[in-house]
Structure formats: structure tokens, C-alpha cells
Design a protein around this nucleic acid. Structure first.
Lengths: 193, 193
DNA sequence: TGTACATCAGTGAACGCGCGTTCACTGATGTAC
DNA sequence: TGTACATCAGTGAACGCGCGTTCACTGATGTAC
């Protein structure tokens, strides 16, 4: 069965839909993410996704959970990097800002109002909470962790919405992490120890 | 000309449209804010807004600018409150979080991706920048101001999207300001002086 | 190994909806004389 | 003060669009015997 023959059954559509959705988020942004556009990009009729996702919302929740897992991984990695404890928040901030710069559409989905019924999806809530928990763990204090999360998140959001022009100074957005790092270091170097 | 007679000419439609839009943002949220819904609420045909706004985007930009002016006013007021300089950020944070809790839909419009072409509207950029400038002025240092803005903004955003359940603990969202204040005080009491 | 049949993934037409925008119009206002 | 007329705000029908979701269907898979 050659791939070019387009068999009637796709075989493994669910992951393909997820991948297509991530591509749309990356290339066209959150506002272009509809069930129909995802199906189209996956090369399948627009009703096909309903065999794998109960609704548009279910797909979005799935994507968001996946996104939180990815973000969490990057935070864990950043927190484990060698350096002084006081540098941890700066590393985390750089990782967070980098993730945001690379996955703006996904971040907007994860944290935005496209998913107003978060409470109805326990797995989503759990994935979301794990971000704050991980930062709190890295900093050794849940309250400081919460505030640090807010700082890092605010920085990332304000940047991707072009409200702060941290990255804009240089050519691309990849400067953002280093700028975020500097900011956070200047902020947190004293109260943390 | 009694008000109940519904004259052909509205008289002062532009402000009425703005008001209608604010009501929709408050009662139904950003996703319900269409030109048609605004016109309907203002009691006017759905083409009427085009006599006062060039496009849907123009109306949104107008609303956002107004929102930034309101937010700025509250920040200025909070920064002028008596107290130690180190308390300023806490007061600003409380004001910011309060504004967010009262105007969630508007805040999403002001800072979200519904307005992807911010750069095309100088007045919008100016209104946006004035927020950061005001916080920087209150704290006496533009870089610290930037980071403080990020913290306060992140806290507000994470709260209104139900990602942090600060307010959710108690009955209303009116606990939010005091909670934000505690967080911010613990964060900034040392590096500020 | 071969056949009947249940299962299920993907199809394509159809639904009703709300949207932004355009257009020729109509009703009201206010200004020039 | 009165009349003709230009101006302009608001109307309602119409456009084309993309959306989420449902439905009866068809093609393929794989299991029971």
C-alpha cells in the first residue's frame, strides 16, 4: 500500500490531526484553528475528526494538554541546569520565553479564553497546575513560585503580543530569552538565595 | 422629541456604540463582540456603525485605547496613594488586578491577539506604552517597572483565565486585589527601596 | 484456508448560523439665499 | 421668515464566506466459524 495511493482509511488519524493543528497554530495562528482547517490539512474530510474527537473543544483541550506537557518539560530541563539557585528563575524564564516565541499560537490556546470551560476538564487543570508546581519546586517556595510564574508568564505574553518590544530590537524573536533572563536576574537575584 | 419615539437619527451614535460594546464585553465576553452585536445593542441597524467606524478593527482599536486610558488612570491613582515607596507596587498590583477582575473582556481585547496589527495604530501603541511608562515612573526605574508590569499583568491574566484560583477560593473576585497585594509585597519588598 | 458478517473509519451533502462589508435608498438636518 | 437644496446619518436587502455539527452512506478491516 503505497502512501501515494491515499487509502480509504487513514490508519492513525488522531496524531495526524494533532500534528496538523500544531502546524496551523504555528503558521497561521490560533484564529485559523478550526476543525475544518485541521481536517483539510490532514488530508481528510471535514467530518472525519469526529471519529477521534467529540467536538472542536475536545481537540483544543487535547492540544492544550500536550502543550502544557511540552512547556513543563522545558521548565524542568531549565531548572536542572547547573548554576546558582538564584539563577534558576532566570533560566526558567528564558526557557519559558523561548517556548512562547516558538509557539505563540499554542501558548495563546493554552492560557487564553478560547477554552472558557477549563473546569470541566480535570486533565487540563492538572496539566496547567503542573507548570506552577514545577516552578514552585524549582524555587523552593510555592508562593514565590506563583509570583515568579506570573512574572515569567507576563513577560512572555506581553512579548508575543508585541506590547513589549524586547525581541523586536534585534532581527528575530530569539533574542527574547536572553533579554528575559537579564530582566529576571535583576529582579530576583536579591529576594532569592 | 420624546426618547420613546425612536427618531430616525440617533444623534450621538458613536459614544452609544462604545458603551454598547463595553456592555457586551462585560456581559458576554470578547468572543461575542461583533459589529453586528454592538449595533443591535445600540438599537440601530447593523450597517449604521460604518458611519462612525471604518471597520470592525477600528472600533476595537478605539475601545482598546479607551481601556488603556482607564487602566492608566487607576494606576496613577494607586501610585499616588500614601505609603512607603515599597508599597507602591502592591497598590498598583491591586489596582491592576481589580481592573482585570471588573473588565476581563476588555483586558483580553487590550492585550490579546484580537488586534494583531497593533503597529498600524500609533495612538494604540502610545496608549499601551503609557501603562509601562506609568509603572516605571512610580517605581523610579524603567527596567524594574517593566518587570513589575509583567508580574502584575501575569497575575491578572492568570487569574481571569481561571488558571490561578486566587479569587475562586472565596465567593467573588473581590478578594483578588488583596491577594495580589500580599504576593507582590513579598516579592518586591526587598529589591525596591 | 475460505467465507459471512459485524465493526468501524472516513465521505460528502446538507443544516442553520452569524459574520464583515457593500449598496442603493430614505429620512432628517441645517445652510444659503 | 420662508424656501430650495446639499449634506449626511441610518436603513434593510444582499453578497459571499467559513464555521460546527449531523446524517445516511460506503469502503475497508478483522473476527467467528
Amino acid at each position: 500500500m503505497a502512501k501515494s495511493e491515499k487509502p480509504y482509511h487513514h490508519g492513525d488519524l488522531a496524531p495526524s490531526l494533532r500534528m496538523a493543528a500544531r502546524e496551523i497554530l504555528k503558521e497561521e495562528g490560533l484564529s485559523a484553528l478550526s476543525l475544518r482547517s485541521v481536517a483539510k490539512r490532514a488530508g481528510v474530510s471535514h467530518a472525519a475528526p469526529y471519529r477521534h474527537f467529540a467536538s472542536r473543544e475536545a481537540l483544543l483541550v487535547d492540544l492544550a494538554i500536550e502543550g502544557f506537557a511540552d512547556l513543563r518539560n522545558e521548565i524542568v530541563k531549565a531548572a536542572a541546569a547547573p548554576g546558582l539557585p538564584a539563577d534558576r528563575i532566570a533560566h526558567i524564564g528564558a526557557a519559558y520565553a523561548g517556548f512562547a516565541a516558538r509557539n505563540g499560537g499554542l501558548l495563546r490556546l493554552m492560557f487564553g479564553s478560547e477554552l472558557p470551560n477549563r473546569a470541566e476538564f480535570p486533565a487540563l487543570k492538572q496539566a496547567t497546575d503542573s507548570i506552577g508546581a514545577e516552578i514552585g519546586r524549582a524555587l523552593g517556595d510555592p508562593v514565590i513560585g506563583l509570583a515568579a510564574w506570573a512574572t515569567v508568564h507576563g513577560l512572555a505574553i506581553l512579548s508575543i503580543e508585541n506590547i513589549l518590544d524586547l525581541g523586536q530590537v534585534q532581527a528575530g524573536m530569539d533574542v527574547l530569552p536572553s533579554r528575559a533572563e537579564i530582566l529576571l536576574r535583576s529582579l530576583f537575584s536579591q529576594p532569592l538565595h
